[in-house]
Design a protein around this nucleic acid. Structure first.
Lengths: 144, 144
DNA sequence: ACAAAGTAATCAGTACTCTGATGCTCGTCA
DNA sequence: TGACGAGCATCAGAGTACTGATTACTTTGT
């Protein structure tokens, strides 16, 4: 199958471009894209567990552990044992974490707004629907 | 800006699913997705330089060096100095490399065919066009 | 002819991401 | 009560992937 016909190549290309632009957007705040994603969930849902964060950010718990380690070392988050479940660590933004997140979010949101502004509401729905059908196909593929 | 409205989230989700399925597809051949991508270009264009491979696979030359180091250690590729440009290393598949690539490609192509089969030709063009407009917006964003 | 600009390769260091494996705690239910 | 499954956290190890820097060669411009 020729490379140019592969829809996957288009999807990957756009995702790659998106990551490059997002990285440039959050970098001035001293964050990586992965760190920004984690902080985004933390800002909406303080005290969430690392496992839940991992699910929301679509990474494995091991990966999230790595990301949180770096965020904690930079004093952007704080982790404390859960009241009842001694096994769970609650994660929260520090003041510095909130500031960094807000600085990054302003610029990251601008990227999303630029993307949204390119399309009419109908086109946006259309793109979402087509991507949704890609998801459907992919999720029905064998994972072995 | 709410998370659900962000088009980037949809793009990222689909790309993530695509990578997961592709990884499962190439893994039985003993390859990673990045290695498969490099071999795909190498199969079409024997003797290509690492720098060109990097451009084709959309990674930095440093990253491609790492990938090629692993492929060479597994005896899937061979690297030899270019005839004229002593500065350039030509990379080629070994016999084992071709076999691994073909095994992986059979399964990876099946994923692409499944994706293609979901859409009519018109829908495919539509999806491509919409993704192309995303690219246009993203490439016009400041990279700082 | 020689400096400047461009291209190729690679080292060093950091971060993200996965698989595989382990240890801990909680809730369930026999 | 006590085994056991489920969920949380994390260690270990490998593979990407980036920025930043260096070295070497080639082409281009004056």
């Amino acid at each position: 199958m020729p490379l140019e016909e592969r829809l996957g190549a288009d999807i990957k290309r756009v995702e790659h471009e998106l990551m490059a632009v997002k990285q440039a957007a959050v970098r001035p705040a001293g964050l990586t894209v992965a760190q920004y994603s984690a902080l985004l969930v933390l800002a909406e849902q303080p005290g969430v567990s690392a496992a839940e964060l991992a699910r929301r950010c679509r990474v494995t718990p091991q990966t999230m552990t790595t990301i949180l380690r770096n965020l904690e070392a930079a004093d952007l988050i704080r982790r404390e044992p859960h009241e009842l479940h001694r096994n769970v660590l609650e994660t929260r933004l520090t003041e510095a974490g909130r500031k960094a997140f807000e600085a990054a979010d302003e610029r990251a949101s601008a990227v999303e707004r630029a993307l949204a502004a390119e399309f009419s509401e109908q086109e946006r729905d259309q793109l979402r629907a087509l991507l949704g059908r890609c998801s459907k196909v992919l999720n029905s593929q064998p994972r072995d």
